[in-house]
Design a protein around this nucleic acid. Structure first.
Length: 579
RNA sequence: CGGGGCGUAGCGCAGUCCGGUCAGCGCGCAGCGUUCGGGACGCUGAGGUCGUGGGUUCAAAUCCCACCGCCCCGACCA
């Protein structure tokens, strides 16, 4: 490509609306432009990168025997009703009606459609296993799109689905994907790690996320420094620490204290000069199984996912009116002692065997102190309810846990039979018995890979592309295209490299050298060949590595061969590191 | 959805509190000249319904109301 004819609108200034580095750089290099919140146009440079990522994904998917499909981006309602997700997806799903008033949606994922194809076509165990995939636009009306393409409302996803006869087969398909994903990320030169994760609305038994560590990430992962434990904060658990400070007064008695207007843990703790660890948070919820009070230490946060796991049903915070009715007090003064009505009480494990605790007295402006669970109030159940905090002990080895932000770029699920049962995707076994197909589903966010690569591979001057997904492999930079020898040699190199099947961008613009150098660094093509009078006087062409800044001077006669050799070498390095 | 910020030329911004040479600056863009290996310099020039609609006023980028849009924090997140 000739830069003079290319549409690569680079920007010197950092766009005001971008905060994370990958977003800024994608805008500045002219890869993307905003169309509406969370929806971006990909310009030629960005699209080239995206296509390269897609190509790597295709190669690795084909490698595990997956077959590419292309499903619709418009879907009918009935299959979503059968799986319950027409309801469940709520506002996240874009919905529309056709001219006859039929309900349609823009699928946020494609389990329903793939499964309905399987349901219509697969009859026998002989036709299994199958792995089907596509690279397709997904639509999700995210409550808050952010960070450029990292969380968009429309994005490209490689989604694949495995269909097996049994759990063992699923395990095989799952492991195939796991390995394929690791190869894909390695080829993109992404440093990833996996964490166990919540399967959320997807359902199923087990899921893992592929993460890259980044301050731009929206997920929080819990990592153990000493062992392999790694989990999304959503599902992380901590080992239980033994309370090394035994409660001060073993024979404390429940006692009412006057705490006017002190509603929060901080306010009460300050007012009574008590450590928040002595305080107990009483949180009231209304669940499908009735009112529930969750008790946790004053220094912890409730992890709603964990409460959900214990309750096994939907719940929501009680309104102030409901709290008053159930406890006799306003929020801020509620507690487990002397409730007006029947409320299920579930307490965090850390409160077990504690005493001399303080919480609301169910009377406005009063708290109760000296409380002991079991003695002063009944607890239906103890469970880990608190959010894991940095420094908590690892559940596996006891070492301190760390929490750090991360970007989720892939997620693999063992779905089981949730969708096959709902949509009647079954097969006959050798005995002629009918069974639901056992499914897995596997996703990779394409734009997230691109943005993540930039997050991991950029410096103050711009992007530093890995050669595997760089928009071009070589950036030819004739300093002064008007200079005869410069022009001739750079043209010769350009045509020669193209002839070798390489991807070349030649900056033939009549601009000052500095401007062209800055653009070259910004765009970040891994190899740059500079052709200028200074070098030509010695018969040399300069080859510069974007990553290291290292420059080698080669004789102009061998420049073509040398550049090709270096490109092939760089490509091979990535390939060979993958095994 | 709650909280905060913002919307003035392609980009980055000043002007808004206190209504009246406030339609301005830098970059970019076009032309000419000098320059020419890390975002040059000079001169000239083009380019803006001041997000939209309504209101107040002799007069509105500026004050009031409504709406739209973008960003950030939170809630949420397959």
């Amino acid at each position: 490509m000739r830069f003079s004819q290319a549409f690569i609108p680079t920007q010197k200034q950092i766009p005001a609306d971008a905060e994370v580095p990958s977003h800024q750089l994608m805008l500045r290099t002219g890869m993307i432009r905003l169309h509406l919140s969370g929806v971006y146009s990909f310009l030629p440079l960005g699209w080239r990168v995206l296509r390269k990522v897609a190509q790597i994904i295709r190669e690795e998917m084909e490698q595990i025997g997956a077959q590419e499909f292309l499903l619709p981006t418009l879907s009918r309602k009935d299959i979503w009703e059968k799986t319950g997700r027409w309801q469940q997806a709520g506002d996240l799903m874009f919905r529309l009606k056709d001219r006859r008033g039929a309900d349609l949606c823009l699928p946020p994922t494609h389990e329903e459609i793939f499964t309905s194809i399987a349901a219509g076509e697969i009859r026998s165990y002989r036709e299994l296993p199958q792995i089907w995939y596509q690279i397709q636009t997904k639509f999700r009306d995210e409550p808050r799109p952010r960070s450029g393409v990292l969380r968009g409302r429309q994005f490209l996803m490689k989604d694949s689905y495995s269909f097996d006869t049994d759990q063992e087969g699923l395990e095989r398909s799952y492991q195939l994907h796991r390995r394929a994903y690791l190869r894909i990320f390695r080829r993109c030169e992404l440093e990833t790690f996996t964490v166990s994760a919540s399967s959320g609305i997807m359902g199923g038994s087990e899921s893992e996320e592929f993460m890259i560590s980044s301050p731009a990430g929206e997920d929080e992962v819990v990592l153990c420094r000493d062992c392999d434990y790694a989990a999304n904060l959503e599902v992380a658990t901590a080992g239980e620490q033994q309370s090394d400070s035994p409660s001060p007064s073993a024979q404390s008695q429940a006692e009412k204290v006057f705490t006017p207007e002190k509603k929060t843990i901080e306010a009460v703790s300050e007012f009574l000069e008590l450590s928040p660890s002595r305080l107990m948070k009483s949180l009231l919820f209304i669940s499908e199984r009735g009112p529930v009070m969750a008790l946790i230490s004053g220094e912890d946060q409730l992890d709603e996912a964990k409460l959900n796991r214990e309750l096994k049903c939907e719940f929501r915070p009680a309104t102030p009116e409901e709290a008053l009715e159930l406890t006799g007090a306003h929020l801020g003064f509620i507690g487990p002692v002397g409730l007006k009505k029947e409320v299920m009480i579930i307490a965090d494990l850390s409160l077990k065997d504690q005493d001399d605790l303080l919480t609301g007295a169910n009377q406005d402006d009063f708290h109760l102190k000296g409380l002991e669970p079991g003695r002063d109030f009944r607890v239906e159940k103890y469970a880990q309810l608190r959010m894991v905090q940095s420094g908590d002990p690892c559940p596996c080895c006891g070492a301190a846990l760390e929490i750090s932000p991360a970007i989720e770029i892939g997620h693999i699920f063992k779905l089981g039979t949730k969708y096959s049962q709902a949509l009647e995707a079954t097969y006959l076994d050798p005995q002629g018995e009918q069974h639901p197909i056992v499914m897995g589903s596997y996703g990779i966010g394409l734009e997230r890979i691109v943005a993540s690569v930039i997050e991991q591979h950029s410096d103050k001057d711009g992007i530093v592309w890995p050669i595997s997904i760089a928009p071009y492999q070589i950036h030819l930079l004739p300093i002064n295209p008007a200079h005869q020898e410069t022009k001739e040699l750079s043209e010769q190199l350009y045509q020669g490299l193209l002839g070798k099947g390489l991807e070349v961008l030649i900056d033939d613009r009549e601009l000052r050298a500095g401007t062209k150098f800055k653009d070259a660094d910004l765009i970040g093509i891994p190899l740059r060949a500079t052709i200028g009078e200074k070098g030509l006087n010695q018969g040399k062409v300069e080859i510069r590595f974007r990553k290291s800044g290292k420059v080698i001077k080669v004789d102009k006669a061998v420049a073509l061969a040398k550049i090709e050799e270096i490109v092939r070498e760089m490509e091979k390095t990535v390939q060979s590191s993958e095994n």
